[in-house]
Design a protein around this nucleic acid. Structure first.
Lengths: 390, 390
DNA sequence: TAAGTTTGTAAATTGATTAAACAAACTTAG
DNA sequence: CTAAGTTTGTTTAATCAATTTACAAACTTA
């Protein structure tokens, strides 16, 4: 049964248009919204007044006149509610509390040992509880919780498969939902990162973007037409497991020559530890070596940039997103990676689509995923007609 | 200025829901539509009567009763208008005339020499004129023309770049539009093929599909959420130019080891001609050799299937469409390709997403592109509110 | 000070959906 | 063969969000 049209739908559409203008172009007046949106002043006035009634919008006083009555300026009331975002890593839990504008109010990173599913869920609950307790009093309170996981989930909050956690078929969403009594959204960590960059980071102007989460593997989050693309089986896309070497190294996924075997952080470190004969080497140390002018370290970054470039060209040619955002710990090494990466891309991509393409390092750094998780919760809050109808 | 909600929008939405039921589930009664769509009987009745008024729907008499008054069955009137689809190849022009249901009424394949842009456009006009003259009298006449081209176009009907035709910046759409006075849609041949399969072929049940057009190169058309994905610069995606061999053969696109250098028809023929020492060899001949049990020919197909499989696994892992449709001349070789292809896919893909994936050879064969082109024209006709409002 | 602008609200109108009622057409149980 | 119940499709009145038109208030500018 497809969604049919009725007066409620009309109002919902228009109210969300009006709210979007106030969210993204504030301070703004009723008259200006009417002009921009193509609605009449009367309609906008009525909808704005309802939004004020539901505490999502505030009047902040008169603005400058342009030759007539002064406009009453409107502001989105970000503090009408709070959202909790969680980035569940293999050995850490990063939690933030944000208001409805995505402004971070509280942030905490916990270590976790991943001894059992129950322990992790308990740790998650404690971390979420701590964040929730920091939320100031507000009209709607905690409106939802978003969680980014290193694995895949179905649409109902169940973690289907998270190899690096050793999880299979864990009903994480329902567990958290039951504990806190608010809607919970679970999605892949790279998907969350992509949405984080779209809403609050480097990708705010983009329609289509691919977010690369580079760590022990390479995860990809794909946003098309401003919407997260989740793929047909919830398994939205893993460019990390596309082969760039026909008969390359075998990968645990069954394929050979997967991109992440060459361009992930783990791949870099493995090679670096071998070459530099240092078994405890990490990326920070490698960066310091490069800064000191160590030739071998610099060559390693150059090689890594090259491998990254290969896969990025494949993504550019394959789905031509307007923007590719490189995220994760990698952003720290931007200085050493950028030049060889751009060189590889330049050398191997077609001039035409490249011209319209952006390639940027994440501005949100390690926060892309948590902020994306918050955005899931906030979007769900606004989508649940609760606020927008009546 | 975003599209706002008003009464027209509501009606447009509901009318198109009703029309879709009649198009895809006919014969169907008003009462049944109301039940399925979640609209009231009164609303459906009113909308259906307007659709009958605009000649898009017909009553075909009473159906079987289920214990009450007999329902009046409704049928989509496919012959209320006709659409022309064109597949412009490097050396041929394939034209079809279809009714609004996509039923082919007339079809003709012409050869063309590609001596100059003007000559080709003249040949196109003549071919279209011939098809248009075959259209029976109807309520709306020729409602539009769709053209699939071996290149990329902007949204305004301009051919930006078609290397194999030697075209750059040709205003094909406006030229045809001026000559025939109906809307013209131009898009890439693989994009058209993808839409053809979605609307009339193997992909009718799919939400997401990738269509592979395998010829001298490999073109890909991507459909996501039932909509053609056009990419950020109109350059919607060319998986043919993703590298599957890091330091493989150089490609004219600037990259190395592009998939189409291994898995295109040209790549097969090049290798086959070398191995079999037959410079005039074509695919038909190779198939016949394989049918006669020629070991070398069979091995060539096996190798080709393997290369195809590599790229298909990359697409599966990269964007996880629900369905991949293999199209073009290739379908003829299905018998020899299928086994090695499936073996490669089976061996190298992850069990989880593979389970939900379909991999099929085109049912429309060489007609995917023309029918997709027709579908462009038909969709544009229905989208132009002309029919749906008032 | 008067004229013109701009903002935001109010009142009347429009039009599509819905809910409720109903007539017509049909099946089925007795 | 009749009466009761079902199903279909239309009619009528009510609802409600947007629009159109009008207008008062607040402001700038000549």
């Amino acid at each position: 049964m497809r969604k049919t049209g009725d007066l409620n739908l009309v109002k919902e559409i228009n109210k969300s248009i009006v709210l979007d203008y106030i969210r993204h172009q504030s301070p703004i007046s009723r008259a200006r919204i009417a002009e921009l949106a193509g609605l009449t002043k009367a309609t906008v006035s009525s909808l704005v007044n309802e939004l004020i009634g539901s505490r999502l919008v505030q009047e902040i006083g008169a603005g400058a006149s342009s030759g007539g009555r002064k406009p009453m300026m409107l502001l989105f009331n970000g503090t009408a509610g709070y959202s909790i975002g969680v980035d569940l890593g293999v050995d850490y839990i990063l939690v933030v509390l944000t208001d409805l504008s995505g402004r971070i109010v509280f942030e905490r990173r916990h270590a976790h040992a991943n001894t059992s599913v129950e322990r992790v869920i308990d740790a998650l609950k404690a971390a979420i509880r701590e964040a929730a307790d920091q939320a100031p009093a507000s009209a709607y309170g905690i409106i939802g919780i978003g969680i980014g996981i290193p694995g895949i989930s179905d649409g109902q909050g169940r973690v289907l498969f998270a190899p690096n956690l050793g999880w299979e078929n864990v009903p994480l969403g329902p567990a958290i939902e039951e504990a806190f009594g608010v809607p919970v959204v679970i999605d892949n960590e790279a998907n969350a990162g992509a949405v984080g960059e779209l809403q609050f980071g480097t990708g705010q102007a983009a329609d289509n973007l691919v977010y690369l989460s580079i760590g022990s593997g390479i995860g990809t989050g794909i946003v098309l037409n401003k919407e997260l693309y989740r793929g047909s089986s919830g398994f939205s896309g893993e460019f990390g497991h596309t082969s760039i070497e026909l008969e390359g190294k075998p990968c645990r996924c069954g394929n050979r020559g997967c991109w992440e075997l060459y361009a992930s952080e783990s791949a870099l470190l493995e090679e670096a530890r071998k070459q530099l004969e240092d078994r405890g080497l990490d990326v920070g140390r490698l960066i310091r070596l490069a800064e000191q002018g160590d030739e071998a370290a610099i060559r390693l970054f150059e090689r890594w940039g090259f491998y990254l470039g290969i896969g990025i060209v494949n993504i550019m040619n394959g789905i031509n997103p307007g923007l590719i955002v490189i995220g994760g710990k990698l952003a720290e090494a931007e200085q050493w990676l950028k030049a060889p990466l751009l060189a590889a891309v330049e050398r191997r991509s077609m001039p035409y689509p490249r011209a319209g393409m952006g390639l940027k390092f994440s501005g949100l750094g390690a926060r892309s995923t948590v902020l994306g998780a918050c955005s899931f919760a906030i979007s769900k809050f606004f989508a649940s007609t609760k606020v927008l109808v009546n």
